[in-house]
Design a protein around this nucleic acid. Structure first.
Lengths: 338, 338
DNA sequence: TTGTATGCGTTATCAA
DNA sequence: TTGATAACGCATACAA
C-alpha cells in the first residue's frame, strides 16, 4: 500500500504539499500540482480513508434510514443507493426506521452515535417526518431527500416529475382510443399520489374528456391488498373503464389479478398501467406497462449531493428533477371495439 | 468521547494494560482486570473502531457479494443481512457480483482492496463458484456461505432443510385429499432444486402415491417467465393435477397467473404452493401458501459466524441448519370433490 | 508558495 | 504481570 509519504518522496515535495493537492488547496503552483498528480498516478496512490477519518474525527460514511423493505419501491431504492455508494467508493451505514416504533428517537440517536455519520439520505416516508428533521437539525446532521412531499430548508432533494409522467401515461391511453380511463390513487399523505392524479386529470381535460369521479378511487395506501377492493369495485361497474392507471405497480397488479379472476382479458378487454417499474411489474403476465423511476440516477445524484453537502452553503437547498421513462409492455393495448 | 488514556488514568494503570483487558489477554491479574473493567464502565468507554482499524490495518467491516437483486430471494436476504449487521453494530460493505461479467475477477479484487474486508458472506449463486473460492482462498479471505450447493473446506455454512420442508408441504397437500400433485423444479444447477424435488417425491412414496413423471416439470431456472410455460403445459393436461407445488414463490405466481387466465379457480379447482416467502407471495390473490425461509435467523447466524471466524480453526467447517415454517394461506384448499 | 513537527486512539515492541 | 514509547497514515498549526 502506498502512503502519502512515498508520494511526497517520489514527487520530491513534502507530505503537506501532497495533502494540499489532494484537497484542492488554493495557493499552489501548477507545476508542483502536476508533479504531485503524476507521482500519485505512478504509484497508483489511494488515500486511506481510515487514516483520514481518524484525523478528522468524523465518519466519512453515508447514512441511510430506510422503511419497510417489503414494498417494491423501497427495495429498488435501497439497492440503487447501495450500488451508488459502492460505485462512488463510499460506505453506507443503514438503519431500519419505523416511525410507528415509540422508541424511534432513541434508535436514531443510537445509530448516529454508533456510526458517527454526518450525512443522511432519507427516502419516503421518513423524509417527510417533521419530528425526525427536528432531531437531525439539532444534531447538525445534513440530509439529502429523495422524493419528499415538501422541501425542507437546508436540505437538497431529488425527485422525478410525477405529474408529467402520469400525464404522459394517461395520454398514451387516450391515444390508444380509450376514453373511459380509471385511476386508483395511492396513499393520500404522500404528494406523489396527488401529483399522479393531477397528471391523470390534466391529460383527460387536455383531450376534452370529462372527469368522472366514479372512475377515481383511493386505496388509502400503496398496497396491493387495499387496491384489490378498488379494482373489484371498478371492474364490476355497469359501464366499466377500458383502461386503468394505478398509482403504483403493486396496485396495478391487484387490478390485473382481479380482472383475471373475473374473466376480463388483459389487454384485450382492459388495459392496465402502473408506476415505479418495481420487480412485480415483470412477475405477472402480461408484463406491466409502467413508468420507470430513474432509481439508478436518483441514487447516484443523492450520493453526489451528499459529497457536495460538505462544501455547500446550507441555507440554499437545491432540487433536482430527473427524467423518467415509460415502459410499454403487454398489459396495455388499443381500446376494445365495444 | 472517552479515550483509552482516560480509562487508564481513571484506573491507575497504563494504556497498554487497558488494551490488554479489552482484548482478553492471557497474563493479567484478575485484580487489575476488574479495576480496568470498572473504569471502562464508569466512563462508559467505547473503543474507537476507526483507531483500531488504523492500527491493525484491516477493516472490521463484513463484506457481502450479492447477485441480481430483482429476485425476491436475493432481495429478502440482502435486507436480512443488512439488518443483522446493523443490529450487531457491524458495518457491511456490499458489492454486486455477476459471474457473467468477464471482468468479475478484477472487480472483486478492487472491492477487496478498497474495503480491506477479511470476511465475506456469500449467498447463492456466488457461494458455489469454484473460481471465486480459489481467488478468495489465495487472498486469505474467510467466508461464510448461505445455502450453498456444496460444502467448501474451511468455510462455515448456514442452510435450512429444503428436503424436509418440501416433504411437509407435499404431505400437507396429500392430507388435504390431493393425489395428483404437480411439481415445478427450479434451476437444475442449484442443490435446492434437487432437495425440494426429493422431499416432494418422498412424501408421495410415503403415502403410497405413484410418481407420475408427467407431473414433474423443470423450468430450467427459478424465474417467473420460465415457469409460465410449465404452468400452461401442466394445466392444459387432460388429467391435470389438483395441486401444484412450485420450487419457489415466483414460479408459483406464474401458476396462479396462468390458472386465472385459463379460468381455473384457486384454490377451489387448484391448490398452489410456493417456497421462500418472498414479497410476491403476498402481492397476489389469494395469498400464497409457502415455506418461510428463516431469513432473519440465517442472517443473524451468518454475522455471528463471521465474528467467530477470527478465532475459529479454519480447518474445521461447521454447518448450521435452521428451522423453517410453513405458512398456510389462501392458495391451498381441499381437493375438489369429483 | 512550501516544509516541519505534532497529534488523532489504538496496538505492539521491548524492557522492567 | 506491567509500563513507556513507537508506530499506523493523514491533516494542520506554525514556521520559513
Amino acid at each position: 500500500m502506498t502512503t502519502i509519504t512515498e508520494v511526497a518522496q517520489h514527487a520530491g515535495v513534502s507530505v503537506k504539499t501532497v495533502s494540499r493537492v489532494m484537497n484542492n488547496y488554493e495557493h499552489i503552483s501548477p507545476k508542483t500540482r502536476d508533479k504531485v498528480r503524476r507521482a500519485m498516478e505512478d504509484l497508483s496512490y489511494a488515500p486511506s480513508s481510515i487514516a483520514r477519518q481518524m484525523r478528522m474525527g468524523d465518519s466519512q460514511s453515508i447514512g441511510m434510514l430506510y422503511g419497510d423493505p417489503s414494498g417494491g419501491y423501497q427495495s429498488r431504492l435501497n439497492h440503487a443507493v447501495l450500488k451508488a455508494c459502492s460505485d462512488a467508493r463510499r460506505y453506507l451505514a443503514v438503519e431500519l426506521f419505523e416511525e410507528s416504533n415509540p422508541e424511534w428517537r432513541r434508535q436514531v440517536e443510537a445509530f448516529l452515535d454508533r456510526t458517527k455519520v454526518q450525512n443522511l439520505i432519507l427516502v419516503p416516508p421518513m423524509c417527510d417526518s417533521a419530528e425526525l428533521h427536528m432531531l437531525l437539525q439539532e444534531r447538525g446532521i445534513r440530509t439529502v431527500l429523495i422524493s419528499p412531499s415538501r422541501q425542507i430548508s437546508g436540505s437538497s432533494s431529488i425527485a422525478m416529475d410525477d405529474r408529467l409522467a402520469a400525464f404522459e401515461m394517461t395520454k398514451y391511453f387516450i391515444d390508444l382510443g380509450h376514453n373511459r380511463i380509471g385511476h386508483i390513487c395511492g396513499h393520500p399523505g404522500h404528494v406523489a399520489s396527488l401529483l399522479r392524479r393531477q397528471g391523470y386529470e390534466e391529460a383527460l381535460k387536455n383531450a376534452g374528456i370529462d372527469i368522472d369521479e366514479a372512475l377515481i378511487l383511493g386505496a388509502g395506501s400503496f398496497f396491493f391488498k387495499d387496491a384489490l377492493a378498488c379494482a373489484e369495485k371498478m371492474l364490476r361497474m355497469e359501464d366499466r373503464p377500458t383502461a386503468i392507471f394505478a398509482a403504483n405497480d403493486e396496485m396495478a397488479a391487484a387490478v390485473i389479478m382481479m380482472a383475471n379472476r373475473i374473466g376480463i382479458q388483459v389487454p384485450e378487454d382492459l388495459s392496465v398501467a402502473g408506476f415505479d417499474n418495481t420487480a412485480i411489474s415483470q412477475t405477472m403476465w402480461p408484463e406491466l406497462t409502467t413508468v420507470a423511476q430513474p432509481f439508478g440516477e436518483i441514487a447516484r445524484e443523492a450520493v453526489r449531493l451528499v459529497s457536495d453537502n460538505v462544501k455547500r452553503d446550507l441555507s440554499v437547498s437545491a432540487t433536482r428533477v430527473l427524467p423518467h421513462e415509460i415502459l410499454y409492455r403487454g398489459s396495455t393495448g388499443p381500446a376494445p371495439e365495444n
